[in-house]
């Protein structure tokens, strides 16, 4: 069981690090936005699994907030790009 958690934690850390590299190095702004959005998705998975790890169901609400609202920032930047804001 512990090995499984360790595997999952290292995978999500690697995913966050790779997304951060894309967001830091990305030559254009859409690259950075997609990198940060990927980071948000991995973080949502991390929060859900950590709720299972802590054995607290109420912690799922935090992941739900991020899942429901996370796309609005991306939408704002995208609308800026097409000069719609």
């Amino acid at each position: 069981m512990t090995a499984l958690w360790l595997l999952f934690l290292s995978f999500s850390a690697a995913g966050i690090a790779l997304c951060l590299v894309r967001a830091a190095a990305g030559p254009t702004t859409p690259d950075r936005v997609v990198g940060v959005d990927g980071m948000a998705t991995i973080s949502i998975a991390l929060m859900v699994l950590l709720a299972s790890f802590f054995d607290r169901q109420v912690y799922l609400d935090v992941a739900l907030v991020y899942a429901v609202l996370g796309f609005i920032g991306v939408l704002a930047v995208a609308r800026y790009m097409e000069r719609g804001v």
């Binding site: 967001a23 936005v33 940060v36 991020y66």
Partner: peptide, 8 residues
């Protein structure tokens, strides 16, 4: 976008 990453 970097600020959004910090907040996340």
């Amino acid at each position: 976008v970097a600020c959004a990453a910090v907040s996340l």
